[in-house]
Design a protein around this nucleic acid. Structure first.
Lengths: 222, 222, 222, 222
DNA sequence: TATGAATGAGCCTTCATTCAT
DNA sequence: GATGAATGAAGGCTCATTCAT
């Protein structure tokens, strides 16, 4: 378990192998995929810096080193850019998390792994945190029209761990996995939101153990 | 101490007597003050509904039942409208809080009163909460140019309670009131922010006692 | 022939008795006439200072010490204000000039009197000069719709002097009064325009004799 | 010396070869330069027709055959459009004048050339005359903020001729070139202004010889 | 595929004019 | 008559999006 695996994929990082199908979906060669990635990363930076509504498409283009029009070859419009940040980054996150979790065996270790990666990931990529926790929630398009498939997948990932824990007998049998996975996610999400709103001034990583204690205590067999 | 006093002044509410000087400050008779108020309340609604950048001045005007141009008789521009929401509502809040707190005697009761009013107030006026916790923080004008005098006054109000508590011997003598008042405000502010970001789905009021416990435990003589 | 008679009626000056019919025409008592006058004088000042299009009706009202709406009790609109400056001031000018000219006997003296008053008048009321020579010529309404009855009257006044001069034998018999009066006016008008455009930096009065020489030489019997 | 060289560059005219650096300065290829030129020429027309304040940016756009927004790709704002007319047209004028003057040898011929081109140029492009002599002087932005570098260059061009004349012994040695060049320009400028204000009804060209007489007489060795 | 010049819909703001008091 | 708060039409300007090259 290396440090790298704790970070979210950022500007320079190569695409995870499992994301090959994502490329196929968009019919991209690696060069095109690079540009797709560059625009997305530029958008994260600019959105985080200025906020969605005060970000200019032309500024994102400049940041990405492409022409304004090029952005519209990869994304439908400015809204789509924001929503794609969520979709793509979440897919990458889910892949990385799945891989990392697969290296652990028991449910408790896997939960610890997920919590650690969630908090460390946002801490190491604060611009993405700002976009996820602030900008996306202000986007009426995102909140109303987008079905957040990736969020469901992430919740499922958590659910799988909880299910395993119940089977292992580590977690209480009477727990509702459907509710509990939302509880786990909600806790992590709130932690990151609070950290963002507080100006990202403290260390999120130090909260891993307390949060795990809380979660395991709440769901555990006592 | 009635429930009403726990709520923030909203659209329908009459101006507090102590706010007479506010009217004088702006040189308004009651009719102009009514319109000033109506526009401000309309702006709170629309900003909360759409967000600042997607709110149209004309929509605020329609909501307030005035012509577009009328808004500019009372506010310098759209930015000023947002900043004025903070300034005016905070002044009203501070007045109400001071009055309510004056009815209590000891510092602990007063702190309880303030905490209760802070949480209940935002809960009863969720649109104001959205503007205070989300829109204002995105306004670069607000963050950079406005000195937030009213915030200082609110912090002072908290400071006075803490000072009293130290004199009463309820709070530790070695506490820094300057820091502690920020700690108290920061805690309340974070609670409300988290509640807003979470979609205002749970009851803020239920957090009064836990928060007080936390605060009193942290500052108390043990 | 006193100096005062060389000046155009300005802010403080009382209305000429012959303007009584002007008052009647507008059905005004002296108080209303005063206000009418005050607004007109204020408009001259503001138009001269800022130019017509950059002058605000509210600024004219402030300068005149009346409410914005009051202006519309005396003038149809902003355009009418500009045109009325011309009409009213010209009427006053014509009256004063007629009176002064009546004190002279021969045509040459009368022409000298008119030239002197024309140049001295604008020099002593530079704001009116700016409005007459610059603002009015930019007003499409004035240039297209207004028939400039007062200009005709002024030309007639000049024509009468020239006619007399021809009868006296001082001016050539073969002169066309219709053309010559335009020539006289055109010369004076150009002098004042040039003076205004040059920033009113030199003395218009010093041009009385050269101009008279030119005019008399051109029209005289040699 | 053909007639064409006496005219100012107007809508249809090709850019002078020496203006290639102007294109470079703005980093424009010929197509962009064409559009820049088209907008400028349209602005001259519309400003001359309606006056600056009554001209609509959308009307200039229509006249130029471009969209409203296109204007803002080439000019900062409406004010900049007016000031650019002066800057660009003056640069072109200075180039043309320098070329034409270079074909003459002695100072007197060169001064005659300049006077002739100045008067003939404005006569052949009356819309530019209206903008130069009327609209620009009303623009507070132009009068206050713009340093009129091109005017200095034009004055310098005149100064060079006068200097040469002094060396040739045609002009008096005791003449101050610094003042005399202003005198020459002022005379020409006043002539054109008067002509514009008078409705451009007479022939400016006929004034070349009288003006030259005046200038040469005033500055000459007698 | 990539470009970036061109587009034009839309919004904030101003200010001449009106009208209830 | 006098007021000045209110009106709302109109215009300068921005910027997401398109499309000819």
């Amino acid at each position: 378990m290396n440090d790298c695996s704790f970070n979210f994929p950022t500007a320079g990082s190569k695409l995870h192998p499992e994301l090959a199908n994502h490329r196929k979906e968009y019919g991209m060669r690696s060069k095109a995929a690079d540009k797709h990635q560059a625009i997305l990363d530029a958008a994260v930076k600019v959105f985080a810096r200025k906020g969605f509504f005060q970000s200019r498409v032309s500024e994102i283009a400049r940041e990405a080193g492409v022409a304004d029009g090029t952005i519209y070859l990869y994304f439908k419009n400015k809204d789509d850019l924001l929503i794609s940040i969520f979709a793509v980054k979440m897919q990458e996150i889910i892949c990385r998390f799945r891989d990392a979790i697969a290296l652990e065996n028991d449910a408790a270790s896997r939960l610890r792994c997920l919590v650690r990666m969630h908090l460390a990931g946002f801490q190491s990529y604060p611009e993405l945190a700002a976009v996820f926790q602030v900008e996306l929630r202000q986007s009426s398009r995102f909140m109303r029209e987008y079905n957040k498939e990736e969020l469901r997948q992430y919740l499922d990932l958590i659910g799988e761990i909880l299910e395993q824990g119940r089977k292992e007998g580590v977690f209480r049998q009477d727990i509702s996995v459907g509710l509990a996975k939302r509880f786990v996610f909600g806790t992590l999400d709130e932690l990151v939101s609070t950290w963002v709103l507080a100006g990202m001034q403290y260390d999120l990583g130090s909260m891993v153990d307390p949060v795990l204690n809380l979660l395991l205590h709440g769901m555990g067999r006592n």
